[in-house]
Structure formats: C-alpha cells, structure tokens
Amino acid sequence: MVIEEILVIFFGIFTDYTLRYVALGSTILGVTSGALGCFTVLRKQSLFGDALSHAALPGIGFAYIFAGTKDSMLLMLGAAVFAWFGGIVTLAITSTTRIKQDAALGITLSVFFGLGVVLLTYLQSIGGPSQGGLDRFLFGQASALIETDVINLGILAAGCFVVLIIFFKELKIATFDSAFGQSMGFPTKYLSALLTSVIVVAVVIGLHTVGVVLMVSMLIAPAAAARQWISSLKNMLILSAIFGGISGVIGSMISSTTEGMSTGPVIVITITAILGISLFFSPKNGYLFQYLRKRKQRQSNLNEISTATGENSN
C-alpha cells in the first residue's frame, strides 16, 4: 500500500505538471546549494549563508515596490542585490570595528530581516500582494513555481556551475590555503568575492523552495553529510550535490501531498536526516563504527591484561 502510494507520487513527476516543476525546482536548488555549500563549510563560513539569506528579504520587498510586479526574475534580482549588500555590511563591520564575526552576522540578519518584515507589512497595508503573496518566501512554497520560474532557476544554477568548473582550482586553493594562493599570485580577494556571488545566487534560487529562514541548512547540511564519507573536494562536491538534490525531490514531494505545507521545513528535515545517517554510519568516522572499534579495542586490551596477569600468577 505504502509503496504503491510512493510510486504514484513518484510517477506523478512525469505526468503531473505542477509536481514536475516543484520537483525540478527543488532539485535545482538542492544540487546548487549542495555543491556551493561545500566551500562555505570548508572555509568555516557556515553561518555567513544564514546572514545572506535573511538579508535577501528586503530586496524582495523593494523590488516589488519599485517594479510593481511579481515577476520572479526582478524579485530575485532585488534579493540578490540585498544579499550581497548584507554580506558587504557584515565584512565591513568585522574589518572596521572590534565587533567579532558572530555578532556582525547577528546584526546583519536580524536588522535586514526586520526591514524586510517592515516592507512586507507595508505592502500588505497599502493593499499590495494578497496574503500568501510575498511571505511564501519566508518558508518557501515550491508549489507556486511555474514553468518560467523553473527555467530561470535552471539558468542561474547553470551559471553557478560554469563558474565553479572554470575556477575550480582557484577556489580550491583559496579555500584550503589562501596564504599560499596569495603567494602564488592568485587574487584571493576577488576569488572570495566570486564565491560570495555564487552563494548569493544559490540563496536566491532557494527563496522559492526553502525560503530565507531555513536556507542556511541547505548550504551546510549536504556538505557536512558528504564530508563524513569523502575527503577529496571534487568527490565531496558531487556527493553533496546529490544529497541536496535527493532532499529537494523528497521534501517537495512530501509537502505537495499535504495541503498548505511549506516546502522549506520538509526539505530541511530530509537533509538533516541524511546528515544524521551519515554521522552514524559512515565507515571512517561514524558513531557506530567508532563505538564498535572502541569496544573491540577494549576487548583486546582486556584479553592482553588477562594473559599478562595469567602469566604472572604462573
């Protein structure tokens, strides 16, 4: 019975138009954020994505106020501009004051988000978009995706991957040994800016499917899960993209079966489950194998002690 239902939903991707776009959109997000998230995790900037995604919210509001349409490309452009701006503000705070990175991130994400909320409520009070118009970007509503949205998302994602492939070596060096990169003549500053830009694009793609509030999870969790299995960067990127894509498909399918359920939370729970499995069962560092190894070690230690004491008593 259950399997039958799952199959019906799965084949729905090929027959049901809405579901097809929902699944496609979520997969595009999952794959892109999965791959790019590896860099944020490895550069120890995991929470930077959180600030960027919250900072995108006022961009949506301003884009709507100035353009007056819900054209998704314009809204995404506004979101991207503000996400970038949020990133710059965070960096400017840490580089010109003694405030540390965590507080700078907290300032950016809460103030920008507050501004975004002000704009959204302003739009509602002047009779702008109806309830559920723009606030679907808070937790994502993949079921609102239409064909042109998905095509736009696809183009943006393709752009990210082109950048990623062309600059793979440079980004790798900037991530693992930025001082060495600088000494080799790589413009590490520009590379960081480039990386921030592609992460902004990933955040913008994520607005439709997971929303601004939970986006950070889509950047961190797939990468952290992939890291448990693999240590080479290239393979880690691929596995992380696969994990992200799987969680996108599963999450959007589950949420589309239930009335009024946002996509974001379901996708986040799915990817965290994948991470949990990875933490427990990865053969190298998993909790399970660590425990088994420890027990075996203890057993052999005990055996050694008992043979040693046995010899002594003889």
């Binding site: 120890k44 995991s46 939970l214 950047l219």
Partner: peptide
C-alpha cells in the same frame, strides 16, 4: 562549531513550523 549551529537550529525550527 558554526556548522553544528547552522544544522541543529534549522532542523528543530523546521519541526516546530510543521
């Protein structure tokens, strides 16, 4: 540390939202 923070709270928050 920052990765752990960024994983744990969205997860718990997502359950709460659902």
């Amino acid at each position: 540390k920052d990765s752990s923070i960024g994983i744990v709270f969205p997860f718990l928050f997502a359950i709460g939202v659902i």
